[in-house]
Design a protein around this nucleic acid. Sequence first.
DNA 1: CATGTTTGTTAGTAAACCTTACGAACTAAT
DNA 2: ATTAGTTCGTAAGGTTTACTAACAAACATG
Lengths: 379, 379
Amino acid sequence: MTTGFATGRALRPTTKVLPEHARGHNRSLVLQTLYRIGTLSRADIARETGLTRVTVSDLISELMGEGLVIEMGQREDARPGKPATLLDLDRSAFQIVGVDLSEYATFRGALLDLDGHLLDTVSLPLAGSTGDEAAAKVEQIIAELVSRAVRPILGIGVGSPGVVDLNGVVLSAPNLGWTGRDLQGELAARFDLPVVVINDANAATLAEHSFGGATGDMMLVKIGHGVGAGLLLGGTPLFGSRFAAGEIGHVMVGTDGGATCVCGKVGCLETWLATPRLDAALAAATSDIQKEQILWEAGERLGIALAPVVGALDLAEIVLSGPTELLDGTLARAAIETLRARTMPEFHGNLELRMTGLGEDIVLRGAAVMVLSGQLGVS
Amino acid sequence: MTTGFATGRALRPTTKVLPEHARGHNRSLVLQTLYRIGTLSRADIARETGLTRVTVSDLISELMGEGLVIEMGQREDARPGKPATLLDLDRSAFQIVGVDLSEYATFRGALLDLDGHLLDTVSLPLAGSTGDEAAAKVEQIIAELVSRAVRPILGIGVGSPGVVDLNGVVLSAPNLGWTGRDLQGELAARFDLPVVVINDANAATLAEHSFGGATGDMMLVKIGHGVGAGLLLGGTPLFGSRFAAGEIGHVMVGTDGGATCVCGKVGCLETWLATPRLDAALAAATSDIQKEQILWEAGERLGIALAPVVGALDLAEIVLSGPTELLDGTLARAAIETLRARTMPEFHGNLELRMTGLGEDIVLRGAAVMVLSGQLGVS
DNA sequence: CATGTTTGTTAGTAAACCTTACGAACTAAT
DNA sequence: ATTAGTTCGTAAGGTTTACTAACAAACATG
C-alpha cells in the first residue's frame, strides 16, 4: 500500500532501515521467487520481482557463491533472442533438522530438504520422561539426525507443545514438565547451528501455509491429546500478547453444561474433542448411530466455539489436524454446518473447513518452514 | 524484531525495496519520534532512533522545508556542551477532516489538529437518507469543514459503518443503502485531497491505540444500533479475508436459545446488546433489580461470545465503546467476570476490560489517525 | 583560563540500486 | 544468405542513502 516495508497499512515505524537491510530483503525476494516458481532465468526473476536485470544478476552471483543457487543449462524452447540461462535453488544443497515434540508418547525427528520433503526420520519413545530427561531426549534425536545428514545443515526447527515465546523459551509445557526452559538457547549452544523453537500448532499452521495450499487468513485446529490452534493472519503467524494465542482447549463451549475438565471448569472444548475423551466415548457407544451422534456433537461444539472467532477475524479457512478416522467425516461436517448456521453467510459464507493433507508430518514440516524462513527468508 | 521490514518473524517478502523506500521509512521514524515524545533536539532524535546526527539533520531540514517541523529555540537547562536546538512537529501546521457516519440518525464531522484534538465540529441529521442522498450529505459535511479550515488540510478520514475494503470502497452498508460504493474515490475526486475511508469500528480501534493508551493486542467492541468490533494485533489493524473482520453482531451466543434477530437467527449478540433492544428491555423492567439483571445478562452474553476469541488470540485488552450509562458498570463487570470464568487464567488472567476514555469522538479521532498514518507515517 | 562535553555541520566513503549501452545469440522476414 | 528485430546477460557510470571522521561553536567545571 504505502512503503512496502510494513505489512498492511503502515502504523508506527519502529526501527531504522539501512541500505543493507534493503539488500537482504531483495535477496530474500529473489530466493523466494525461485523457491515458489522454480526454474527461472535472471530476466524472468527481474520481471517477476520488479528489480532490474542488473541487480538480479548481482544478487544471483552472490547466491551462487554461497551454493544456494545453481545454473541448470539453457532454456530449450524456440524464441527470438539470446537463449536464457536457467537457474534454480539447489534444493539439495542443505538439509534441515525438524523435531516434533507434540505427540503424547513419542518424540519424532526428521531430516528434510529445502522443499520440506522428509528424507529420513527418527523417533524415540518418551516413556514418561519430563524435565531434563525429556530435554536430553530432544538432544539425542537431533544428534542422531545431525550425524545422518549428508549435506550442511541449514538449521534445526523444533515444534513444542505448550506456550513458547519468540525467543524459543518454553514458558510452560505441563506434559513435559518445562517451565521457562530456554530450549532454543540450550540447543543452539549444544549444536552450534541456527535453532528455532516454536509452538507445535503454530508450526503446523506454517506447514499448511507453505505446503498445504492455504491461501487467506486461516486457523488450524490441532486435535490430539489436547486441543490447540494456530492462526495465520495476513500471511503472518499470530503469537498473542503472552504467546498463548491458539490456546482454545480450555475455553468453555455453550451454555448448557458438559463434562468436567481436568482444569476444573465444565464443558471445555477439550472435554468434547480431545482424542482420549472421544475414543472412550466411542468405545462405550453401543451402536453406530450412537457413535455418529458422538462425533456430530463433537463437531457441533467445535463449530460453536469457533463461530465467534470466525466472525471476529473473518477467516477464509479452517484446517483440522489430527486423527483422520475421528475428524474427517461426520465431525468435520457438523463443524462446518454449525459454523455456517451461527455466523452471517453474507460475511462468512465463503468459509471453508477441511482436513490437512499433510498428515502426521505436519509439525516436522512446519518446523522446517521456520528454519527456511529464518535463514533464507523463504517459505 | 528482526529486520524491521516485515512485522514479526518475516515470512514471504513480496515487494522489492529501494534505497528511497528506506529514506521514507526513516523519515517517518523521525516524525514518529517527534510525534510521540514531543520537543527534542536533533541529537536526541539520533539517540532515540539509532540514526546518526548527520542523517537526522538531513531529514529534519527536509521536514522543516515542508513546514512539518519547526525550531523551538534553545534548551534552557544548564549542561556542558553546546546548547541544543529544540525541535517539534508543528502541530498546527495542518488540519485534518474527520467524519463519522456510524451514528444512526446523524452524520458528524470535525476539524482536528495533528494531535487529534477536535477544533471544530459539524453535524447533519441523516433524516433517513440513503444511497446518493446520503453520499451527498457526506460531501456537504466535508465541504463545510474544508471551508472552515484555517490551515492546509492534510487529508480527509471517514469512518463508515459496514464492510469497507482497503481501497475505501464500501462493499456493503445496509443502513446507508450502499453496496460496492467507492466513497473514497468519489471524495478524492471531489476534494482533490488525500482521502481514507475505513470501517467505523476499525477507526475507533485505531483511536484507542493512539490516544486511549491501548498497549498490546486489543479488541474494541462498539455497541450502538448494532454491534461491531475492531482488532489490533501486533500493532496492526486486522481487516479479515473479506474485509469483514469484527462483524460479530450476528454471531449466535450460547446454546440456550434467545430472542429472534432481524437476520433470522436466534440469540445473535445484537439481540442482547444492541442499544435499542437494551433500552426497550430496560424500559419494560419494573424494578431496579430487574434492570440490573438485564444488564448483567447482556454482559454475560458478551463474555460468552468473546471467550473463544480471547482464547484464540490471547488478547491483552478489550475496550468497550458506546453509551456509558448502559455499558460502564454492571454490564462490563459481568462481561469480564464471564470471560475470566470461561477461559484459562494461566493464559489469559491478565486480560483487562474497560470503557474507552474517548467518548463519542472516538470514530472522528480514529479517522484522523488513518490520515496521519497514511500521510506522515505517524500515529 | 584551560579542559572537557555536547551540538550540529562539512567532507568524504561505502553500499545499494538505477539507467544506459553493448555484445552475444537466437528467430523471422526479405 | 542477408538483414532486421528480439532477448539475455554484463559493463560502465550515475544517483541516492546513510555512514565515519573531523571540526567549529558554545557551554560547564575545576
